[in-house]
């Protein structure tokens, strides 16, 4: 099989201007990946499938990953003018201080594809795509017209992560019921409060029991917590 750099340059040669970025993988598995710009992803996917040498005819695995937004505190050097008394005289002095700034790195939803070739018996090659954010711009192009195996897996990602695949022939929830509103595999999903007593409670369970009792209160709930 060609190395990942060669595949990248093959894609760039075949589709001029395609946004392909190499993402190295530091783990011993050495499965590096290519991040595609969603705009040309379908084009690139078709090239990978139909190119005689690459022939990635088998899309094995489609995965969703949630990367929530992170609040990063960093120190920024700021130059400002302050008034100070120097030698008994009030003067305007410029000084540089380090000031903590909070910055929110926007989160995104990522979809990862693992491709193999049944004809050439090589693989895997890992492709990834990212949405703009996690709330309103969550569209990604569907590869189901190219590899049918993505059909249910993309539906699952739509269900559990909320990525909307444009061009998918039948985009409905796969696992949860119709009318369910949440995307439970997202990391900020809150479980429904159906907590009850657990005989061998861990700390997290005890914390949840306390929260449950506080939220419901009343005599009827007496004794439901594990921590009593």
């Amino acid at each position: 099989m060609k190395s990942i750099e060669e595949i990248k340059s093959a894609i760039e040669a075949a589709i001029p201007g395609a946004g392909v970025e190499l993402i190295p993988n530091p783990s011993p598995s050495g499965q590096h990946s290519l991040r595609l710009a969603p705009a040309d992803a379908v084009e690139v996917a078709r090239f990978l499938r139909d190119d005689a040498e690459l022939a990635f005819d088998f899309l094995s695995n489609v995965t969703g990953v949630d990367w929530p937004g992170k609040e990063i505190t960093e120190k920024v050097k700021v130059t400002r003018t302050v008034t100070r008394i120097v030698d008994g005289v009030e003067q305007q002095v410029e000084e540089t201080v380090e000031e903590p700034r909070k910055r929110v790195e926007p989160g995104c939803l990522e979809v990862v594809y693992h491709l193999f070739s049944m004809a050439k018996k090589h693989g895997p090659i890992v492709l990834r795509m990212r949405t703009v954010n996690r709330t309103d711009q969550v569209e990604l192009p569907s590869v189901t017209p190219i590899w049918r195996s993505a059909e249910f897996q993309e539906r699952e990602i739509f269900d559990l992560y909320g990525v909307v695949f444009t061009g998918h022939p039948d985009l409905r929830r796969l696992l949860m019921w119709k009318g369910f509103k949440d995307h439970p595999m997202r990391r900020d999903y809150v479980d429904p409060d159906d907590f009850e007593y657990e005989p061998t409670a861990h700390d997290s369970v005890l914390a949840r029991a306390a929260a449950h009792k506080a939220a419901i209160g009343g005599v009827a709930q007496k004794g439901t917590g594990a921590g009593e």
Binding site: P192, D194, E196, A220, Q221, G223, T224, G225
Partner: peptide
């Protein structure tokens, strides 16, 4: 979630 989350007539809230 399911509504209601339990049938109170069948399953009284357990007392510890």
């Amino acid at each position: 979630d399911l509504e209601p989350t339990s049938n109170k007539g069948v399953w009284p809230v357990p007392v510890v």
